[in-house]
Structures are given as C-alpha cells and as structure tokens.
Design a protein around this nucleic acid. Sequence first.
DNA 1: TGATCCCGCCAACGT
DNA 2: ACGTTGGCGGGATCA
Length: 829
Amino acid sequence: KSPLKQAATSHSVLTEIQPHCQPLTTPPKPKETLPADPWTPTSNLKMLISAASPEIRSREQRRELSNCTSKVLQTKQCLQEQLSGDEYERSQPSRKEKSLGLLCHKFLARYPDYPSTAESTFICLDEVAEELNVERRRIYDIVNVLESLHMVSRLAKNKYAWHGWHNLSKTLQALKKAGEENKYTQQIEMIKKREYEHVFDLDGERNEEMTRPFGSNEHSEMSFVELPGMEFRAASVNSRKDKSLRVMSQKFVMLFLVSTPQVVSLEVAAKILIGEDQLEDLDKSKFKTKIRRLYDIANVLSSLELIKKVHVTEERGRKPAFKWTGPEVLTNIPDTELETTSTTCPPPVSESIPSKEQCSKNLFPSRGKQNFTRHPSLIKLVKSIENDRRTIQSAPTSPVKISASTDQNLSALPGEMEQVPAIAKHQLKGQSKKAKETKMKLSRSALECNSSSPEVVPKPEPPRSAALSQQPALTQPPGVRPPSHSAVAPAILPHPHSGVSYAIYLCPSQAHTVTTYSPSFVLQPLPCANVTGIKSINSKVFNKMTTEEGDNQTATDDSTKSLTAKERPTVKSETSQRCLKRSQPLQENNLIKRFRSDEESLDTSLTFFPSGYLIALPQCSHGSKAGFSNKEKAGICSLQHTTYSSAIAGVIPVAAPELKAVPTFHITPLNIMLSPTSIAAAPVLSNSSLHSHNTSSAQNPSSSVLNFTLQHIGLIPAGVRVPANPVLQHIPVSSQPENVSHSSENKNLQEKVSKNVLQLLDHDGLSEKLTVSLSLPDPKEPQTVTENFFQTPGGPNTVSLPSANSDGIDRISQGTLYIPQRKLEVSEN
DNA sequence: TGATCCCGCCAACGT
DNA sequence: ACGTTGGCGGGATCA
C-alpha cells in the first residue's frame, strides 16, 4: 500500500531531502540509519566494481552533490523548526520538495543515462517508490511520461526496463513525424487564430472553422507512437488501451517539435489535446483537468530538460508556456536509417562526454553510414576531453543500483556507455553562482585545449543553466543540443567581425508559424522585414490580427528593449557601449527597474524571426584556429544572450569554437528571437578588422561541402545543389536603395552583404531564390551580415525580404510562408 | 488572486 | 478477490 506520509525510511541517500528532524508528526523509523547504500546484497561487490567505473563515480558525485544540498535544506528546516518552536509537521516538506519534478530528478539519478544496451536495467516500481519514499502513484506519473519517450518500457506489471537516452533521438524524430502528419502546426495556428478572433472579433462567423478546421481527420485518434524494435517488449505485457498520460505526453512533445518558435503555451496545448477530434465544447472543467495533467507532464519533461518553462506575452497577457530545450530534431531522415542509426541523445546535464567515435560520427549526424575521416584537431580535442573527464570522475564511489553486468560492460567498453549524472538541479538553483563557476572552469579547460583564449566571458544566462554543466558544449554529440543555451551559442554565432559571408536559408516547413516583429515604436522606424509584398491567402486574416497585436505590444516592446539594452553592458565593447547610449531610451528608470526585477530570471522578451539558417561561408579558418578574442567572445556572448532561442534550433553541432579548426560551415539556425534592443545595441567592431578579414578571405568552401551540409541538415533535398558561394553571384537587389547606408565608407561591405542570398526551399526540394537585401550596416559598425541581420530591426539596418524573385514570392504565397506580425514574447519565469 | 500541482480516492484492469 | 494502474479533480501552496 502507499506508505504513510511520514514513513521516513531512508533507503537512499536521495531521499534525504525528506526531513528527519520533525519530531512531532510521525516518529520516523530510526531503523536503518546507516549511510551506506543498502542498494542490494551485492552492493559490496558493486562498490569494488564501481571503483573502476567512471560512470559510477560520476553518479556518486552527483549524489554527493544532492546530498550536500539536501543537507543544507535539512539543517535549514531544522533550524526553522527550532526557531519557530512547534511548527510541527507540514511546514517541513515544503510542497516544492515534493514536486514531481524533483522526484523525477531523483528518479533519473538512479539510472545511467546511457545504460548498457547489452544488459537491461530494470525498474521495480515498488522499490523505487519505497526508496524515493513516495507513493507509487507518483512513480507512475514519471514512468508514464518516460515511457512516452521510450526511455523506459514496460516489461511486466510493476516492472519496467530502463533505456535511458538511447532512444530519445529516434523517438523524437518519430514524434515529430507523427506531429507533422497530424498537422499539428496547422492546428496550433488554428487555435491561435481562433483565440485571436475570439478576442478581437465580436462578429459571429467563427463556428464554421471552429468545428472542423482540419479536413482530414481520418486518424483523429493518433495513438501511442512506438519505436520499431521497442514495441515488442511493450506489447508483451502491455495491454494498450488507455495510456492517456503517455499519449498526452507524446502529443505534447509533438507540439514542440512541429512549432517553430518551439514554444507551446499550456492553453494551446490543452486545447489541441482535448479537442483535436472532438467538438470543441469548451468544457471548463475538462480544460482545467487537462491543464493539470499537462503540468504533470511538463514537470517531468522539465526534469529531463527537454523543455523549460517560459511565459508568452500576447494580447491576452502572460500565459504559461514551455519552450523546447531538447535536441533539435531533424525531419528528413529516412526511416531505414532511423531504425539502424543509433544517434545518441545527451542527457540534460552535459556532463557526459561522448566518445571520440560518437563525437566524430555525430559531427555529421544521422546521414547514415557515411564514413568520415576525422579531422586531426578533432581527435585531439576529444582526447583531451576524455582525459579531463577521467580526472573529474576519478573520485571513488559507492555502489550504485545497477546490475553488476552493466557495470562490467561499462568497464569493458569505456567511453561507450557514457552516462550523465542527473543532478537535482532544483536543489541547486540557489547555488547557481557556484555552479556557474564550476561550469566555466570546466569549459575553459576544454577551450584551452583548443588554444583559444582562456578567458571565459561571464555572461548573463538563464537561471536554469545553473545546473552543473560540467562539460563544454562541444562535447555534446551533434544533432543534439546541450541544455544550456550558453553552451552552444558561441558556436552558433559566426565570427562577429570576420567579414564572413552568409547565406540565409529559410526552411519553409518552419516558416509556417514564423512570426516576425513589427516595430511600432519610435526607435524602430523601419520594419525589419518587409513582407508586404507577399500576398498570402491568409494574409488578410493575419494582417489584421498582427497589426492590432503589434499596436498592443508597443508598450511591451519598449520595456523589452530597455531591458536588453540594460544588460548589454556586460559586453566589453566600447563601441557597443556607444551604441547602447545611442539607443538607450529615455525611460531608463523604467528599464532599470524592470531589469532588476528580472535580472535573475532573464526575463528577456524576445521577438521571433523567421526560422531558417544562417550559414557562414567561412574563409576557411584563417589558417589558424585562433579562438575568439575576448572581445569577440564578448560580442558573441552578448549576441547569444539575446538570441538564445537559436540555440535550440542548433541543427549542427557547430557549437564548439574548436570546430573552427576544421574547415566547416557555421550554420546558424535562424530560429531567432530578437529583442529589438539587443539589435540596437549590438557590438561594433572596427572597420579595419573587417576589411582585413574581408580581403583575407581567399578560400571558399567547396560547393560539394556546402551542398552536403545543407542536405545533411535537411535544408535541401538530396538532389538539389546550391552554388558554393552565393556571394559571388551577382543578384540584383532592388530594394537595397531604400536602406540607405549612412556612409559611403561602407560600400564594399554593403555590396557584399546585399549579395547574400536568401534561399527558400520547398518541401519538395524545389528551391527558389530570394535575394535578401541586407542593408548596409552602419558605416561605423562593420559587422558581419549576421549581425546586421540581427540588428536590422533596431538600427538603421533593414532586411527586406521579398526584394527580388517574384516567383519565389508567389511560391511563398501559396501558403508555405506567411509572416504574421504577431509578436510573441517569451520570458523565462 | 491566479498559477501550480500534490494528494489520494476509486474505477478499470490484470492476474 | 486482490493488486496494479492511472484518471481525475479537490483544494493546498506558491508567487
């Protein structure tokens, strides 16, 4: 039966959070107080084995950590108790300490992230429940969600198998596919639209589409998505049927995977999950219940760091939402490879380091059997990382609940079974500073092996990254995104002033839900994207809607802007400071206030821009692997800070600066959320440096590489090829003149910039070109195109989207791309 | 307050 | 009949 609330039998160190210092409530069974791990009778043996297992050691570390924090909590509680006299019972286990999320962390901590595939790790629900000291009911909640991700599978009653993160990549791909098939993208838009109309339109006429928005509802009851090779196990004992939570969880995840700003509000999710087939009777209580369930799911997903809570600010006000922070999921991967290729998905806390093999293999994620020669520098890098890890994990450990066979496997296949300690980040939040330091130190060591400047520029980062992320981003297997945005960002952002050219590729499939920003306040007189030329079928609706929204948003925009500007000072760039001043709005007080209140939570309001990819066409590494200079880093950091959402979209693990040593493309996902402010205050670099870089750029990437890259990440279909260097192509840009350069000095740059090509690709692979006229950057601000692009909305720079190829525009108007000027703000916390 | 979401009743199942 | 699962929603907490 479910244990009594207070039946405090601490079997696991992990349960130490449970206050044992409360005398009144329930006399805690003083029974087993031995701190040792009573895991199993063979624990001694395991202990010996684990001495050699890095995995175990790291596990131990993690546990220590959580121990530490929990102890703090404990003492704190005890103190409280003493101080307040008899505050007996209840105040103790604060509600938060019993949260599903925390529980999930504990749960996850029990198992290796990447368990041996040879031996199964089993989960006995009873045991777990007992050891974690919770009712079994709660474990079900967790397990059900994990099951939906195929991280566990049911073997028999009360018995599950733990798979860890092995399957996640595949699962997500499957889910994404399912989501696409289910037309979730459209559904989301539908809901949003409906909602909008509901608010702003009082005229009836809404019900025709309300009832049957999506023509094909044949499926309508999309059931549990299973993985090939996974299902048999489940099938053995699983009497499918309900699985509501599981299915709900999957659907929820799908929503993230198919929506372009990967942000899903609870409300929308609930509506879709409720009514996708059934008539939309806005049953209040049903809705409420759904929301409750979604919270449950979200808590687990959050523990997995697949999502993160944010808030979207829309016309309606702040709405709870969640943002996908999990790995980017590629779509165009053939099923065959889906099944055979086992891509690894790194667990949240990036403490695991992929093996060399993984690293190199994943460098070119999921295109299958292609064999790539590892670049020497990469090998070196990986090696040093591995060394680092060994050092880090050299601490002795105590036994862990893993089957002995697993352990042996681990030692037999070092580097293969990387596991990532899941730290109870919740508990660590208060110690984010420390964590950050640790993280920085570690990342630095990694950076150093790359010979780049050791200075790691501290940057504002979301609180969530307080989690100990002991490994630099570059250690993440490609195709997967490290949990911490900051980790990836540097890589995503191309050298700020290298004079590199970029091609912008928009992925139409993502363009559906793209939102853009409509500047309506003084400081941004120029629209960032002039899409008026696009005559979309839907345009009427969206125009109307977006316009109003834009107006409504004005106030928010201001504050947003200020906020970002305020943060800017972190950037060590005199020029940027100048810039900042220039752009600093009058409402400084306001800003500061706002900033202060949000500085912890990084409540950055951001604007989404059309998704796509910024692909740097590097001048082949300038001969040296010269890392970012401090200044550069600063610039990068600042940028990354304001564009953190792009991190999620990381398709290619360009992440590590190290990779610069390898001639490669920097592909920056343009899942950009820009805050107008950041744009205005973007760092400025010296002209000279720009020019020098420009002139020095001799080599162009071979077109084959480019094509490969594009194909690889699914931007273009296999057959299609694009010119190696768009910059070399002269494409007349008509709209350019409007965006007047402020100085002739900049002409060169301007020309270069304006020649960048925006390539829109169709699902079918029919690609059309659109030239993007990237306006000339401010003469004094010789940034790369990338930055120009970033700055566009704020500064004098503008990007005119549909400037040339009318054909392409038409294509867009077919419905593949519309850019509602809805503004979406996302803030953490 | 509203947003969160813990708790545990109890029904549907499985054995 | 009894144990497992897990839907569900009241109402406690949190912000």
